[in-house]
């Protein structure tokens, strides 16, 4: 059995033109766990994901996977240490086939062509895209494109996976499908997942822990049921009108 890995973020901050988008955020995650990252619009969730994967340069703070200081690496080195992501606005390689899209995830982290193909086929079949393997990615439905992005991320055999609003644009039925797909993944794939999502039903059913952001700051963290009753979270979500006064 593989030993557990830990993903650690310490005191991460980022400002845009003086405005603090992410302000001193710290969190920790182990493989096998699902952490929900929630907060109102503009609270810094996507910025946080961009910082954690090196797509944006941080102002200060540390990002570690075990002892590897991935916060100081260029973005394309980060997947080699086991951190991959998906995008809120789907980013697939539209002119490549599904197979090639999924293979990229494996090839990107240095897997050999043959193994990458084998892994990609297995993952696509597992995610229910088995009969679309040779189709070009742009011909897929929205839902399938979301799944393809997840397949590509998994093909890197990641230790940690950041999902940025994977249910955005999916209907209720498709969201349930996604839930039943993601739920067993931490154990079957030995992966830790951070998920950003607005769909509270998905978040509450899926996550072991929640981390709530507002104006770039952590306002609460803990078990879903505790966080839901946290007065500050309630205020941030429901009482923003009251808050502004």
């Amino acid at each position: 059995m593989e030993s557990k890995s830990t993903f650690t973020v310490k005191g991460l901050s980022k400002s845009f033109a003086g405005l603090k988008a992410v302000d001193d955020v710290s969190l920790q995650l182990e493989t096998g766990e699902i952490l929900g990252l929630i907060g109102p619009n503009g609270s810094g969730k996507t910025t946080l994901i961009n910082l954690m994967t090196g797509m944006l340069e941080k102002d200060s703070g540390q990002i570690l996977i075990d002892n590897h200081n991935i916060g100081e690496m260029p973005a394309y080195r980060v997947p080699f240490y086991g951190l991959v992501r998906t995008y809120q606005t789907i980013r697939i390689f539209k002119n490549l086939s599904c197979l090639e899209n999924a293979m990229i995830g494996a090839l990107g982290v240095g897997t050999k062509h043959r193994e990458a193909a084998q892994l990609a086929v297995a993952l696509l079949e597992e995610l229910g895209l088995g009969d679309k393997i040779e189709l070009s990615a742009q011909s897929l439905t929205f839902r399938d494109q979301r799944l393809l992005e997840i397949a590509r991320a998994l093909a890197a055999k990641p230790k940690f996976m950041l999902l940025d609003e994977p249910a955005a644009g999916l209907n209720e039925e498709e969201t349930d499908e996604l839930l039943s797909l993601l739920k067993p993944m931490p154990h079957s794939k030995q992966v830790g997942i951070i998920i950003v999502e607005h769909d509270m039903r998905l978040i509450m059913n899926l996550c072991d822990r929640l981390h709530v952001l507002n104006y770039g700051r952590t306002i609460a963290e803990g078990k879903p049921e505790d966080v839901r009753n946290n007065p500050e979270v309630v205020k941030a979500y429901l009482g923003s009108a009251a808050h502004e006064q």
Partner: peptide
Amino acid sequence: LKLRATRDDRYAARSSGINF
């Protein structure tokens, strides 16, 4: 294949481990 991936989406290629 990596190069074709960067053609379609540089950002996704980068976060998949490709130095374009």
